[in-house]
């Protein structure tokens, strides 16, 4: 079974370790990059939600890219951005309805989560397992009923 990136906000404590891990993992020339994952409290005081790219099936970012810099990696299912092709028109940043395509101002790059090529660093460092990269199990019936 394919691994999926699973976010469980109930377990998130808002420690922002994922953010730090992401920044380090995406350093450019030794300088930390902007994090692709955003732990936000979403206006609810007792709940933190790590907001990261959902790798939509019908992705608005891919549709918006006029130079085909965004493509899906068939192995991981992640939408990956080719920085060499990107012309920085900001179309994907504006189009993503979840706000997960970003502009890294420091390095002047458009960035988005690429699941670290199939081994997400944030999930590895998450101390409470709010972020996991594991084979996907459908939700249990109990909750729905």
């Amino acid at each position: 079974m394919k691994n999926r990136f699973v976010i469980n906000p109930v377990l998130c404590t808002g420690c922002r370790t994922c953010e730090l891990a992401c920044s380090f993992a995406h350093s450019v020339d030794g300088k930390m990059g902007r994090s692709r994952i955003y732990p936000l409290d979403g206006g609810m005081t007792d709940l933190w939600v790590p907001v990261a790219c959902l790798q939509c099936e019908e992705a608005a970012c891919i549709k918006s890219c006029l130079v085909n810099a965004l493509r899906r990696n068939p192995e991981t299912g992640a939408v990956e951005l080719n920085e060499e092709i990107c012309v920085k028109c900001m179309a994907c940043v504006a189009a993503c309805p979840f706000g997960c395509a970003l502009h890294d101002q420091q390095h002047d790059l458009i960035i988005k989560c690429d699941l670290c090529g199939g081994d997400p660093v944030c999930a590895k460092f998450c101390p409470t397992k709010a972020l996991e990269y594991k084979p996907f199990e459908p939700a249990k019936k109990k909750i729905a009923g």
Binding site: P9, L40, A95, C96, C100
Partner: peptide, 25 residues
């Protein structure tokens, strides 16, 4: 999609994901 900026989109996402998580809890 274009009428809201990326930062506000992220806030919205966290809010709606948070609501689902609260129900699950």
């Amino acid at each position: 999609y274009f009428e809201t900026c990326d930062a506000c989109h992220r806030k919205e996402t966290s809010l709606s994901m948070g609501r689902i998580a609260a129900w699950t809890k």
